[in-house]
Write a protein that binds this DNA or RNA. Structure first.
Ligand code: MN
Ligand code: MN
Ligand code: MN
Ligand code: MN
Lengths: 242, 242
DNA sequence: AAAATAATTTAGATATGTTTAAAATTTTTA
DNA sequence: TAAAAATTTTAAACATATCTAAATTATTTT
């Protein structure tokens, strides 16, 4: 029975519009995690275990099962990579997550620090009909509220910006592109200070020795601490870049 | 560890705003099912098994666990009833379900036959913040798209109407209050024929021997078959009743 | 290159939630 | 009221997903 199920997975993926709903939450989260960790290279058991906050032994067990299901290529002791099928699922879950986050924020008025947990639960059970509908309502947005790119229906997705605000110098003008989203308290602070994606900052000064940044935005000069700046990712701004 | 968890359930229920999210989907569905089946009397193992499409043995096992968790009062061979805590949870899940159904229909334009399955998955993982928000957007509605009453935040809920359309006679004027929701094809047909809650029907004729009903609504005379009429629940209509 | 260390897997266990088959109990029928 | 039938529970098994502890493999250090 199990074998039959496994052998049908590929068919299901290709033919059944809502296949994600048939995979366990655990499987979906593993695939998502492997996707996030594989930057041109196999992902280690330990890396996955750390990210998901579970034991390495649990990861090994799941990797074997994902391998049987042809969702990953797994080599004992060598690490794991997603297959095309596995990546397809990972990207769909991520698309769900990010569209949900934006919908929660824009349509339902959720605060920035509350969208992640909700999206992380709903992403696994929401149908494509629901997702397509909120994508339409939001006008096929490109970025979630943290500035993460939203994969499109075909699974293509742009790269995240990786230039941190701590790299700026006085005189620069930059635009906020992305916020690190691992700390809820910090997310609440970002929102309170209106340090959110698409805000343009004129850098007045950057104090030495990891000192604070003085930036003009929102009609006044504001001080941004080093710890905060580290978690804000930017692009250098020019009129035509927008 | 398990014992400790069990002993904390009551506390969690009373203190943690999103406690439902901490109970498994299975537990939530059992409680919902028992709620629906207990019309002043204990619910049998077999009734639950039939409703959930699982074996009786599975039900017995779960009832023991729910009993340990003090969510039901269970007597071997005698049947089961919800405790107050259990009923509270059942009503919250039902509230989630029905508000979701209405939101899917009204805000996202889902067809009537598609709202149930989606709501049945989302109801278990959606937070109170989300539910409160859609309740607000919908204006604290009293009924879901099938005409089922939506429990309010305190868990109070009105009774469903039980008078079927087949009971009418020529000359009656009735208002549709509720639709049976077990058959998706029939739900699609209800919607196509605009036989939905709050529609007023002037009964022109009811043919004998379980024959069809002729009713005036939507500006014309329409024929309603017996099988369809059986699944439509109504109230007799008078101006002041609205 | 051997020893030490770190990463990974295996083995054995547990909790959840399900199944079928057999045993026990309750209800119905004669 | 005794036998038959139906319901319910128990027993044994399985799949999923996790754990800890021990064994194995790979990597780093000396
Ligand atoms: Mn998740
Ligand atoms: Mn995000
Ligand atoms: Mn459900
Ligand atoms: Mn309904």
């Amino acid at each position: 029975m199990f074998k039959i199920f496994i052998s049908l997975v590929k068919n299901i993926i290709n033919n059944y519009a809502n296949f994600i709903v048939m995979l366990s939450q655990a499987i979906q989260d593993y695939l998502k995690t492997i996707y996030k960790l594989e930057n041109s290279g196999a992902v280690s058991t330990t890396a996955i275990a750390k990210e998901l906050n579970i034991s390495g032994a649990s990861v090994t067990g799941m990797l074997k099962r994902l391998s049987t299901m042809k969702l990953v290529d797994y080599n004992s002791y060598k690490g794991v990579r997603l297959t095309n099928e596995g990546r397809k699922i990972a990207l769909e879950v991520i698309r769900h997550h990010r569209l949900l986050e934006l919908y929660l924020k824009e349509a339902l008025g959720f605060p920035l620090d509350k969208v992640h947990d909700e999206a992380c639960r709903l992403e696994h059970v929401i149908s494509r009909d629901f997702i397509d509908k909120i994508d339409e309502i939001l006008g096929s947005p490109e970025f979630d509220p943290h500035g993460h790119p939203i994969p499109d229906k075909d699974g293509s997705v742009s790269k995240s910006d990786e230039l941190s605000l701590i790299t700026v110098k006085g005189g620069d003008t930059v635009i906020i592109k992305r916020l690190a989203d691992h700390d809820q308290e910090m997310l609440a602070y970002f929102e309170k200070k209106r340090l959110v994606p698409n805000v343009v900052l004129k850098i007045i000064d950057k104090a030495p020795f990891s000192g604070p940044i003085t930036a003009f935005y929102n009609d006044e000069n504001q001080i941004i601490g080093n710890e905060i700046a580290k978690n804000i990712y930017i692009e250098h701004y020019s009129e035509e870049s927008e």
